[in-house]
Design a protein around this nucleic acid. Structure first.
Lengths: 212, 212
DNA sequence: GTCTATAACTCGATAGAC
DNA sequence: GTCTATCGAGTTATAGAC
């Protein structure tokens, strides 16, 4: 009878623990291999449990995946909004965005390729949950550029082109990381240093190009 | 007896034909779904044949994939070398690269994500066939930048940073295409026009930033 | 070369004991 | 909650007829 209660205590304790171990394992496997490339067995192994227990916590593969993917989207998009949609002057926004976004990806190097890939496999379904067309911050960004042009701070530039230039230079190096490392012969440490430098180099490069 | 020879003629004719139909179908399926997402059945359907015949021409899935993937790499890398490794002055090279590379991807929109993905799944194996570290054109590019800096044409810039900036701005928009289209509300035609503009916008943006 | 039929296997999911 | 064992659908690959 005592054993029963002891077991219960220990096992209830493990609920959160195991669930988190699974999420962490799933994140790792899904991010590196994608939905179709990931195996439930691999996730179970990574979490140190078996497939049956995996299905106990997450009914099926789709549900586990959606759980992980929505988290990733949450990390990827609102951060853009938060920085670009704020109140600061344009040059400050550009500096903040590059520094913070590159920092975030240095801690999550697989995030961008993962997000981009799964959006590709499922164009509309997921995006709609994260992109509210009506009150998009892009409109505010466009207006700000127009204002700063009128004020003589920057040259005349296409806001969309400028915006995707900034995104490209921040995100692409992480997407092409293995390719880039092989091509240049960089090791992991050198790549980190290279990206660390980009936190300042990219905004400098952009501002140099658009300032009047 | 006559039938025999007639059959032989017709069927020999079909060899090349079918093989090409398969390669074309496989290219389409692999490029959009990746290695693990593609099904041999889908490829057979797309080619208008059955699975057995697919295996007659390509022993197994891996071999068919490798055939397609090496072709893709061939299109992706040597073109960079060809343009960046040439004799023209730096600004001309930048203009040529952006225009030609963007044009190539407009005709092959799935190419970059496909290449990047499968390199990710197989870091060294494939890359080594396409990247000869010793006589890399990157060395020549670095020297050219040094020369043009000494000549007072450009500011002092890190060649590696400049190079990946250029790659990023040309390639990333194709990688993020579905995301970008949803976020901006562009349709297929508007995206084409947007990329058409980038052929001139990107080099302008870069040169504006580095010219003295 | 091309097909139909099927073997062989992988993998997600469930049953049922503890 | 966790495990072992197993089912069944879906996929790659092969056998064998035409």
């Amino acid at each position: 009878m005592l054993t029963f209660w002891l077991n219960l205590m220990v096992k209830e304790q493990n609920t959160d623990n195991t669930q988190e171990r699974i999420r962490s394992a799933a994140k790792k496997i899904f991010m590196t291999r994608g939905l179709s490339g990931a195996r439930m067995q691999d996730i179970a192994d990574e979490a140190g449990i078996n497939k049956a227990l995996l299905h106990y916590y997450f009914k099926n593969k789709e549900m586990l995946f959606e759980n992980i993917f929505l988290d990733a989207m949450q990390q990827f998009f609102p951060k853009i909004r938060e920085i670009v949609g704020g109140e600061a002057p344009l040059f400050t926004k550009i500096e903040n965005f590059c520094r913070q976004y590159i920092e975030m990806m240095m801690q999550n190097p697989y995030l961008p390729l993962f997000v981009v890939n799964e959006i590709n496999n499922n164009p509309a379904t997921f995006m709609n949950k994260f992109w509210d067309k009506e009150q998009s911050f892009l409109v505010l960004f466009v207006e700000q550029i127009e204002r700063e042009y009128q004020a003589g701070i920057i040259k005349q530039v296409s806001p969309a082109q400028l915006f995707i230039n900034m995104l490209s230079m921040c995100i692409f190096p992480f997407i092409a990381k293995p390719m880039w490392m092989t091509a240049t012969g960089m090791d992991e440490l050198q790549f980190r240093y290279f990206m660390e430098q980009r936190k300042a180099e990219v905004p400098k490069f952009i501002i140099e190009s658009i300032k009047k």
